[in-house]
Amino acid sequence: MSTKIYVGNLPYSVDDDALRSNFSEFGGVSSAKVMIDRETGRSKGFGFVEMVSAEVAQAAITGLNGMSVDGRSIVVNLARPREANTGGGDGYRASGRADVGYGNGGFGGGRY
């Protein structure tokens, strides 16, 4: 079992230290990080906590999931593995077909 925990629906007032102290009640915390928007510098409303063991992580999930923090019911569960980045991110990719593109057979660019 993983020891990395996702914490969602966090109030914007919660910072790394507050997150660490809330989870340290259940055992050792290796790291606690609230995700910050690069442009605004504000919290994105979620973060990740890494616990020292799977047992401690499960105890924290059981104890904190659904708990009210500053009037918001937080979501606490195991973090899913990060998905592989598949490209440029802007939605545009070069086609893998050899017959499509510029300079490959006439005015239209294809062999049609």
Rank of each mutant, 00 (worst) to 15 (best):
V100P: 00
D90S: 07
N77E: 14
K4T: 12
G63N: 08
G108Y: 02
D15V: 10
L19K: 02
I74T: 05
N22M: 14
D90H: 05
A32W: 04
D99T: 15
N65Q: 09
Y102I: 15
N9F: 10
I74D: 12
M1S: 11
S43T: 14
S21H: 00
A98R: 15
N77Q: 14
T86R: 14
A79D: 05
V14Q: 06
R20S: 10
G88M: 06
R97V: 13
I74F: 09
S31L: 04
G71Y: 15
T62L: 09
Y92G: 00
E25T: 15
L19N: 02
N65L: 08
G45L: 07
N22G: 01
G66C: 09
Y12G: 06
S21D: 11
G96W: 11
Y92F: 14
V52T: 10
M1N: 10
A18G: 12
R93E: 15
P81M: 02
S73E: 12
S13W: 00
S53E: 05
M35T: 10
G108V: 02
A59Y: 00
K33H: 13
S95C: 08
D15M: 04
G91P: 06
S24R: 04
S53N: 12
D90R: 04
S43N: 08
G28E: 14
P81E: 12
V34H: 03
G109D: 06
G66N: 12
G8A: 03
G8I: 01
G28V: 07
S24M: 02
E25F: 01
L10G: 12
A79N: 04
T86E: 15
E55G: 11
G71N: 12
A32E: 01
M67K: 15
Q58M: 09
R97P: 01
I74P: 14
A59P: 01
S68R: 12
G101L: 04
V14G: 02
S43G: 10
A94S: 11
R42Q: 14
A57V: 07
K33Y: 14
S31D: 08
A54V: 09
E55C: 04
R42V: 12
A94F: 08
M51L: 10
P81Q: 08
